[in-house]
Each structure stands twice: as structure tokens, then as C-alpha cells.
Design a protein around this nucleic acid. Structure first.
Length: 421
RNA sequence: GUGGGUGUAGUUCAACGGCAGAGCACCGGAUUGUGGUUCCGGGCGUUGUGGGUUCAAAUCCCAUCACCCACCCCA
């Protein structure tokens, strides 16, 4: 019986895993420099957490969640996104009592039952930041900056940062009304989906890709004209901070976040060349969410980005961001007795942190040297009966061909190899 | 959930009704303790799976599964 990987998932094979490790480490370091700390939550939570936070009407909740019941009939879901679990943990562990601000980041897999497509998977890996505890627009800019500057640091420069403000719930109500007034005369001209959206979620009308709907959209009122004073000031301040940070952006009043919990700032980082799924990262402010799921009213802002799309973009730009790790040395042995006696030395090298490759199945020197070349090892350590008897090794630099005979001493070998790197 | 395209060796692809092949990768060898180049040798793989048409199917038809792309949605 042969088994297939579940649809929409993928294996990260050894030939690629170093890239993932590099990107994950890189993001960790970056976030830490901005004062953020890692938080890791389970990959499943009670379904209700997501239903509450994302909104019952959202696509995520409606059709994309992997749900299951445990033996006691409790209903869980594999997490479709990272913010709700982090906020759950924040509330549950009283992180607000520890400090007024919580600066958190996370990495890990998310799950959505979607039809797979370029840059879209059922299990996908996200990196994200959540800042909880202040409504200061500086933090909006900081979170946006982290997401943008990190991508820049990897060598991605052809990015477009789009920002918008969806206002607070009060503004949203006014804006929804304005939209409905605008669209009402054209109701008959809208696509069936949009006729639905007209009532359930008017702001989604702006997101439609049907040509006739796009045409109508051009003259539709802008959210930005329906912000109350505090929201307008907030948005202006965010823009000012971004300018002060010299981060280029464009204001796109049509950015609508899919999840219900967003307020005020919404942003997206777009990379053309990803196909239809061209959003590398996205996020926004969610001042209402924490209270909504049982905490105090605390303002917060965050974002999440997808590793798969990032990988595609880096590949597309032909950026050499990570180097494949190669062995420091390859051990070439001759003779059965040698193979036995050399093992403590070999283990010592490895314990000391050298990457040493060795293959007991390769007999001839030729085969062993070929393997050494293929592995990309910088040195070969050659040991035969002679060397063993004298407690020495031949250390050969595989690039220059230079070879020296030195003591069989792991520490000494390590020093010599490190010195020449 | 809806459309379109594609499934042949580990991989990239040929063969397009008539004997299933090549490049790359992989393994071994070229006088027994020194590699990268070169040369030689090594391939029966349920042609994704199951049916059907035909004297004959990788090839045509149907179904199914998987992948890719798009709608939708978003990371």
C-alpha cells in the first residue's frame, strides 16, 4: 500500500529545509531586535474561539475550518489563523498584569480547508507579530515596519505596502450606510454575490472582481471620508510615523480585511509575481477583539505573513538568502581495524560541534573521496593503519589539495579546521 | 464548492494506435593508500488507478484520484 500526502500539504525535504530554518531564524532575530518575544500556542483550540473572533459570517468559519470532536464530544478546530490563539493565551495567562504592553511574535502552521492553488495550501506556515496594550499609532507603524523591513532585509524590494483605515465600529456603521445608499440604485446590476454582500457585509462590495462591479466601485464613497475625528487623527499619525521611518506606502481605501475583528489600521504587503495569491503579509489593528473573547478592553495590532509565498518571491527574485550547510570534514578510512578504532575520535569531533560526514559502506578511497566532494566538505580526514599506529591523521584541504599530517586529537583538529574557515 | 490543464524511470522530458526511450541524478569500475574532468558498465517502469473501444492503447473514450492554474478567499 502506498500513501499520499494529504491534499494541499507538502513535505519540507532535506534539500529545502535549511531555507526554512534560515527564514524562521531570521524572523526570530528580527522580531527580537524590536523587543518582541516568542509565544507558541497549540495548533488546535475550541472552535468557538475562532467563531467568536473571526466572525460567524467569515469564510474562514463558514467553510474553511478543520473541525473535529474529541472523545468527550468537545468541539475543536485546527487553528486557521494565529491572532485569536495568542489573544486567548494573553487573556488566560493574565499577561496584561505582567506588563502594560505585550510584544509577541509567533511562528507555526495554520490550517484552512481551501482549494489548493499557487501560494495557497491547506497547511501553511505563518510568521506573525502581535502588539497588545496601546492605541498609540506609533505601534501601528512599528508593526508595519517590522513586516516591511524584514522582507527588505531578505533582499525583497519590489514590494508594495498598502494601508487603509477601516475606522472604529461607529465609523463602520456610518460607512456601511453610505455604501448601501450609493449602491442601492445599482442593485440590479450587481453580481449575485454582491447582491448578497449588499446586506450582509457592504464593505466586501469593494473587493469584488467582477468587471461590472469594479466599474461601480470607482465612484463609491471612500471609507476614509467616513472616519470620525479620533480615527482620522489616528490614521494620519500612522502615516506620519511611516514617513518618519522612511517607509514608502500607498493609501488604498479598498483594503478590506476578511476577518471581523479589525479596526482602524489595515495593511497589506503585495508582491506582484505571485500569481493570484499576491499578498505576502497582511494585518491591522484589532481594538475590540480582546474584550470580545473575554478579556478587558485592550487595544492591539498585529500582522501575519506566509512563508510559502515568501519562498516563491525569493525564488522569483533569484535571491541567495541562505547557504546550504556543508560538512566541515569527511572522514576517509582504510581497513576494518581502523574503522573500529577511529570511532571515538569521530564522535569527539562531532561532540565538539564539527559537522563530520562518514560512510562505512564506501570501501575504496576513490568512492570515499567522491562522496567527500559530493557532500561539499571542506576537508578530508584520512586515516589508515599507519596513521592509526602513530595516532595521527592526514588533514587534507579539498579545495587546495594541501595535506598535512597532525596528531589524532579532536580539539586540535577542530582548531585547525576553524582557523582556516 | 465551480471551471480549465496535466499525470511515462528518483527527476526533467521523448515516444502520440504498432518492440517504452534519452539527459541529469544515483551506484560500480579504469592494477590493490588520495577526489573533482574524462571513459566504460549498470533501467521490465503495474506509462496515476479502474473500466471501455481495438487484432493491437502510454497514445482514443469514460470514471476516479492526484498535481498545476484560475474563480472564491486570503498568508
Amino acid at each position: 500500500m502506498k500513501y499520499n500526502i494529504p491534499r494541499g500539504t507538502f513535505d519540507i525535504l532535506p534539500e529545502d529545509s535549511y531555507k526554512w530554518q534560515f527564514l524562521q531564524d531570521s524572523f526570530r532575530k528580527f522580531a527580537i531586535c524590536f523587543g518582541y518575544q516568542e509565544i507558541t500556542t497549540p495548533i488546535f483550540e475550541v472552535s468557538e474561539l475562532f467563531e467568536r473572533s473571526s466572525g460567524e459570517s467569515s469564510d474562514v468559519v463558514q467553510k474553511e475550518m478543520y473541525r473535529f470532536c474529541d472523545k468527550k464530544g468537545r468541539e475543536f478546530a485546527l487553528r486557521p489563523e494565529g491572532t485569536a490563539p495568542v489573544v486567548r493565551s494573553y487573556v488566560e495567562n493574565n499577561l496584561d498584569k505582567l506588563s502594560k504592553r505585550s510584544k509577541l511574535f509567533y511562528l507555526g502552521p495554520m490550517f484552512r480547508y481551501d482549494r489548493p492553488q499557487a501560494g495557497r495550501y491547506r497547511q501553511f506556515y505563518q510568521y506573525g507579530i502581535e502588539f497588545i496594550g496601546s492605541n498609540n499609532p506609533y505601534y501601528d507603524a512599528e508593526v508595519i515596519a517590522i513586516s516591511m523591513l524584514w522582507l527588505n532585509s531578505l533582499g525583497l524590494n519590489k514590494l508594495r505596502l498598502e494601508i487603509n483605515s477601516v475606522g472604529c465600529p461607529d465609523c463602520a456603521v456610518l460607512y456601511d450606510k453610505a455604501l448601501q445608499e450609493y449602491y442601492r440604485p445599482f442593485l440590479g446590476k450587481l453580481c449575485p454575490d454582491c447582491q448578497n454582500r449588499f446586506n450582509t457585509n457592504p464593505r466586501r462590495l469593494l473587493d469584488c472582481k467582477v468587471p461590472s462591479c469594479i466599474e461601480l466601485r470607482d465612484d463609491a464613497p471612500s471609507q476614509l471620508n467616513y472616519l470620525d475625528e479620533p480615527c482620522e487623527k489616528h490614521f494620519e499619525a500612522v502615516c506620519n510615523y511611516l514617513q518618519a521611518m522612511k517607509i514608502k506606502y500607498i493609501i488604498n481605501p479598498r483594503i478590506v480585511r476578511g476577518l471581523d475583528y479589525y479596526t482602524n489600521t489595515a495593511f497589506e504587503i503585495v508582491y506582484e509575481g505571485l500569481g493570484a495569491q499576491n499578498s505576502l503579509a497582511g494585518g491591522g489593528r484589532y481594538n475590540g477583539l480582546i474584550e470580545q473573547i473575554g478579556g478587558k478592553s485592550v487595544p492591539a495590532i498585529g500582522f501575519a505573513g506566509g512563508f510559502e509565498r515568501l519562498l516563491i518571491a525569493l525564488e522569483e527574485e533569484k535571491i541567495n538568502y541562505a547557504e546550504k550547510p556543508k560538512p566541515d570534514a569527511y572522514l576517509v578510512c582504510l581497513g576494518e581495524n581502523v574503522r573500529l578504532e577511529v570511532l571515538t575520535y569521530l564522535n569527539d569531533l562531532r561532540i565538539k560541534g564539527l559537522i563530520v560526514d562518514y560512510d562505512p559502506d564506501k570501501n575504496s578511497m576513490k568512492a570515499q573521496f567522491k562522496a567527500a566532494d559530493a557532500s561539499g566538505a571542506k576537508y578530508a580526514i584520512i586515516i589508515g593503519e599507519d596513521e592509526l599506529a602513530n595516532k595521527t591523521i592526514n588533514l587534507k584541504n579539498l579545495q587546495t589539495g594541501e595535506q598535512i599530517r597532525v596528531a589524532m586529537n579532536a580539539e586540535d583538529t577542530k582548531q585547525r579546521i576553524r582557523a582556516k574557515i
